[in-house]
Amino acid sequence: MDAKPLPKSDDGPVTGRPTVAVHKFTSCDGCQLAFLNLGDDLLTLAGLVDIRHFAEAGMVDPEAQVDIAFVEGSITTPDEYERIRRIRASSRFLVALGACATAGGLQALRNLNGLTQEWMAGIYATPAYIRTLETSTAISTHVKVDLELWGCPVNGRQVLGAVRALLFGVLPEREHDKVCLECKRERAVCVMVARGIPCMGPVTLSGCGALCPRFGRDCYACYGPAENANTAALGRRLAGLGLPPEAAAHRFHFINNGAPAFLEAGRRAAEGGFDDG
């Protein structure tokens, strides 16, 4: 018997009691905590939707067909490469959750130098026992993603907003500001202007509430690149503040190093390409 064809993401709102799955790939588990830290709202959510698979919360049915599949983590093993395809085929909406799923995560630093095998040998006596890919990549590298929630980690507001919107058959309103704007709204003093601290706020997507500048420290871009991020202008500013090329490159090649805008800007910074006065 063939399974009934699953409605697709453009088929309109979900009817009946919606089904949800939370899947883990290569990650720290921190984005799943956006659900597990919801408190009472977690119990409310479990009543509103049918959580079919969420191993960390006790529900196990990895092959379940669901309306919304949340995917945490990046693709780093041959098994994960296969598994994400099966999940795509059995979900109506697929939501990539956090920096690992949207950009490959901090562990995508291995992609920069092609040293994965050498690094494996440096840690494991018999690396042949371990199957791992050369790269750590975002979910969208492999399958169609309906919605990306950026952040390291994502927060409860983001995941609940996504569930609500998707159940109505629409995509949630996207963050599109830069952290600088959030900073102004929060009336935080600009750490770069006031104290000369190299800050990633001008190129980073909003959504965190400008946590770092409010704490008097630099933004380190854990929410990833904003749309139309002017990385060249920031690159020149970082050089102007006295950051050597390697240090400036590290600012871009950090939590979201695999995001194309940061990957490219970091490479240019490393070559001293922004250091033109």
Binding site: T76, Q107, R110, T116, G122, H250
Partner: peptide, 17 residues
């Protein structure tokens, strides 16, 4: 649990990071 190789990519970073 796939390896993420933290001990290796920490090398070369500024200790403040």
């Amino acid at each position: 649990e796939p390896p993420r190789l933290f001990e290796k990519f920490l090398v070369g970073r500024d200790c403040r990071e």
